[in-house]
């Protein structure tokens, strides 16, 4: 009995652990190994160079700027997405006029919920195509076309949204947020619906207004879900490879322009790995990315740790 139980548990654990080791842990270890070499990416010949790649990394302005861009994404994408999603979710679930019936969403909330979810079903590649059409740099672009129609932009001098150093990061963020809000809205809605209505009704009876019931009841009870959303969005913000490489001005390969103003760690890494043939150096970037992501997830989980309320 006892032995059988042990084997039973080990049997279940063995395969997942093995898979994890082979496909996750081992590649990380390999990457670390390659990061200490001058590997050029297309054969298995290379020399050991110690920590030279890491030293060069911290003097690489392009990579340092890329980290900074990722950090900016990391702050703004989760904050804006979560705030918008929370606001919409609250309006859809508890934001309606309070009638005798108690708490409910604004009129047509079921319809909105479906509509808000639409962008989420688009793949990132389609998102890039869509927003390329929005930001297109001549009168054929949605934004420029509109602004030219209302005479805010000179047709001979349209705004090159993705070719403006100060605009490009924000333009990318808008695309990500536009896509993300719907999903987190649905996530938060589900969580809100599991909050018992009587708590709201009790608050209503005590004379709480919308703001008060949101900040005193909804937000605290949603904290777990917000935390999950934060981690997911943080992962998206640390990546951004697809949108940057398919929307921005080409810096040799994988976008990143103008003048590296939209480069993120992943695009710089790929450019070095494949286009420049500096694969060992790129592996060092990969290791730094891993470390940063680890630090951030630990940090996020620590900071947002709260007491759990059961209901």
């Amino acid at each position: 009995m006892r032995k059988g139980q042990y084997r039973f548990v080990a049997g279940f654990l063995f395969i997942p652990v093995l898979l994890y080791v082979v496909f996750v842990i081992w590649p990380y270890i390999q990457t670390f190994g390659y990061s200490l070499t001058d590997w050029k990416g297309q054969s298995q010949t290379f020399n050991f160079v110690g920590l030279d790649n890491y030293k060069a990394l911290f003097q690489d302005d392009v990579f340092m700027a890329a980290i900074w861009h990722n950090l900016q994404f990391l702050v703004f994408i989760p904050v804006i997405t979560i705030l918008l999603a929370l606001f919409f979710a609250f309006m859809l679930n508890a934001g309606g006029r309070s009638r005798a019936g108690g708490v409910q969403g604004v009129a047509g909330s079921k319809f909105y919920k479906v509509v808000y979810f639409f962008p989420q079903v688009l793949s990132l590649a389609i998102l890039a195509v869509l927003f390329n059409a929005v930001y297109r740099s001549d009168g054929g672009g949605l934004l420029n076309g509109f602004l030219i129609k209302i005479h805010l932009v000179d047709p001979n001098n349209p705004i090159e949204w993705l070719n403006e150093p100060n605009v490009v990061l924000w333009a990318l963020m808008v695309a990500v947020i536009w896509q993300g809000v719907g999903f987190y809205l649905v996530l938060f809605s589900a969580a809100m619906q599991s909050i018992p209505k009587d708590i709201y009704e009790a608050a209503l009876i005590d004379g709480a207004n919308r703001n008060q019931s949101f900040f005193r009841i909804t937000l605290p009870l949603l904290w777990d879900t917000v935390q999950t959303a934060w981690v997911y969005l943080g992962i998206i913000a640390m990546d951004m490879f697809v949108l940057v490489s398919s929307m921005t001005q080409n810096m040799g390969a994988y976008g990143g322009g103008p003048d590296h103003h939209s480069d993120v760690m992943a695009t710089v890494m790929m450019r070095n790995f494949l286009y420049y043939g500096k694969s060992g150096y790129a592996c060092a970037m990969g290791v730094i990315m891993l470390l940063l992501t680890l630090v951030l997830s630990v940090f996020t989980l620590r900071v947002t740790r709260r007491e759990r309320i059961e209901f």
Partner: peptide
């Protein structure tokens, strides 16, 4: 002298060639 096709700096190869 403003002699570029407007917006051409941000267009892809297919977009600008088609224009």
């Amino acid at each position: 002298k403003g002699l570029l096709m407007p917006g051409t700096n941000g267009l892809t190869h297919t977009e600008s060639q088609t224009r």
